[in-house]
Design a protein around this nucleic acid. Structure first.
Lengths: 144, 144
DNA sequence: TACAACCTGTGTGTTACACACAGGTCAAGG
DNA sequence: CCTTGACCTGTGTGTAACACACAGGTTGTA
């Protein structure tokens, strides 16, 4: 039987993360000591390693919970797994594109600001640098 | 004097977001009606538009709060503003790279799974698709 | 037996909202 | 004057995935 710390070492997971997973019911202790300490088997370590793999593939903890619950009922989670990854690929692509746009905005701003002095705020302006950025006026809300 | 809803329309911000900003003290009502309704001036609308610009440039609400507080004291926030954007550019670049790696992992997995049938879970395996992914064993933790 | 190092479970804080809820306000209609 | 309905109000709570702090328990050494 392993303690939380030993389980953490065994599964290459920070102990406080193991405790978090316990809290949300993603894993359960196999037994409990009289003093309240939680105890685990090597099977729990394997489960935890599975969780890490799934996270590495972009699954959320909720999805992982669903998957392991399915598996415990003997149902194959594979179909859901494929769908989730397909969905996440789209989602992630959109997020990446958004972040690259942000990156461009920030880089352009910094370059533009190189030629501008610092300013002292007055009633009309909070920070003229930010306010000077292209697209400050006339946002194009053509999407959605 | 504008109500929350009017301020929201004036500044092109969802009303529930305006209420959130009020809650965290990012903006303050200029006055209050007897019934508790909060009232604002057109200056508040300008402030809110500034907040949207800053968010568009990647500033967090906390950072924006600092900036506006600096500005209210008559101190120039420009120096901090430049530093924050520089920092965020690095941060964002790292995040984008990480997400692109995830993207590649997911795409590779999906391709690999095309040749694999669904499986029924047993005691040893939760989902053989996830467990089959390259790099499941022998993680290379060479960084930090 | 005293002490220090470490480990335990758990409460709270984080970011930027989204949703829900009970009640208040306003214009139209009877 | 009263009601009905639509809309608006402030506020409590939930979200994802931890990170940190805290008071107390355990273990090894002297």
């Amino acid at each position: 039987m392993l303690t939380v710390n030993e389980l953490a070492l065994e599964s290459d997971t920070p102990a406080h993360v193991v405790r978090y997973y316990l809290r949300i019911g993603l894993i359960q202790p196999a037994a409990q000591q009289e003093n309240g300490y939680r105890l685990f088997t090597s099977n729990d370590a394997a489960r935890l390693r599975f969780i890490r793999m799934a996270k590495h593939l972009g699954f959320t903890l909720n999805e992982i919970k669903q998957i392991t619950q399915h598996a415990e009922l003997g149902e194959s989670p594979c179909d859901d797994v494929r769908k989730i990854v397909q969905h996440r690929i789209h989602e992630n692509r959109a997020k990446i594109e958004e972040m690259m746009k942000l990156q461009e905005r920030m880089e352009q701003a910094l370059e533009q600001w190189d030629l501008m002095p610092d300013g002292i705020p007055d009633g009309n302006s909070v920070c003229h640098l930010i306010e000077s950025v292209e697209g400050s006026e006339g946002h194009c809300h053509t999407e959605t």
